[in-house]
């Protein structure tokens, strides 16, 4: 490929403005690793656009500034590591869920183990019970009938993908644990969708940077019958791009 011709083709401007198709974007991101001049040309246009747009500002009202700054200050860290939740240093909603997860992992480990070797059943039970030293109160969450676990499996070429969701129908909140999902690019987001009353509605964007922790999602429709995760442009889409479905799970 003639890289100078590629640089002059308009592809850089399209990329920076976010107008590339997913294939064009992928190609450009691969090429820029091999061609420093391509990377340099992208950076140059990014700076050019940024300067022009900073010069071309429109300021919101002082009230808007005040309101948004106050809102930003009020935001709390979106997720808390399970470890700190379990040690009880921070009191939060994750504690019972984390406990449930540990317990479920324990139960799962137990069943796997007993299948593997029935003779060692008793030892396995001991192992499972000692791996989750939980306060008695935390068991309440799994006996709570409003919590529905949803296993989500990889779709099509993404069979390796997995995540588990604990959905609280009463509060409309769900806690998602990603077991495997490819890291999304900076211009793409994973989006969670619910199937409800024959329609597919957006639940929200999933921050897939978070591994080994729960991601909280709110406003999950109460009558959802299935969920799916698709990869969309950053900020999410109005309708799911079916070809980019990564995960699916039914209730």
């Amino acid at each position: 490929m003639d890289i100078q011709q590629y640089i002059a083709s308009g592809i850089i401007e399209m990329y920076v403005m976010g107008l590339c198709s997913p294939e064009e974007e992928k190609e450009l991101e691969q090429l820029q690793h091999q061609h420093p001049e391509l990377q340099e040309a992208i950076l140059q246009y990014e700076k050019e656009m940024e300067d022009k747009m900073l010069q071309n500002s429109t300021l919101p009202t002082a009230e808007t500034d005040k309101r948004i700054l106050k809102k930003l200050e009020s935001l709390q860290a979106p997720v808390i590591p399970i470890t700190s939740a379990i040690t009880g240093k921070r009191i939060n909603w994750l504690k019972p869920v984390a406990a449930a997860a540990v317990l479920l992992l324990g139960i799962s480990a137990y069943f796997n183990y007993s299948l593997y070797n029935k003779n060692k059943k008793q030892e396995a039970l001991i192992a499972a019970s000692t791996s989750s030293p939980l306060p008695a109160g935390d068991y309440a969450v799994i006996t709570n009938p409003s919590i529905t676990p949803v296993a989500m499996y990889g779709v099509g070429t993404h069979t390796i993908c997995r995540c588990t969701m604990f959905w609280d129908k009463q509060t409309g909140k769900a806690y998602i644990m990603i077991h495997h999902l490819p890291k999304s690019s900076s211009s793409r987001d994973y989006q969670l969708w619910a199937e409800v009353d024959g329609r597919t509605v957006s639940v929200g964007i999933i921050n897939d940077e978070i591994r080994g922790r729960f991601i909280e999602v709110t406003n999950v429709p109460g009558h959802s019958v299935a969920f799916k995760v698709t990869l969309e442009n950053a900020g999410g889409a109005q309708t799911p791009t079916i070809a980019e479905t990564y995960l699916e799970g039914k209730i």
């Binding site: 976010g18 656009m49 940024e50 747009m53 442009n233 950053a234």
Partner: peptide, 24 residues
């Protein structure tokens, strides 16, 4: 604020990322 972890500085400037998100 919520998605800042997704911003990858190796892939472009912060403003470009913010602009795409805002436009969407």
């Amino acid at each position: 604020w919520k998605n800042i972890d997704k911003y990858d500085e190796n892939k472009g400037r912060l403003f470009t990322w913010m602009l795409k998100l805002t436009r969407n």
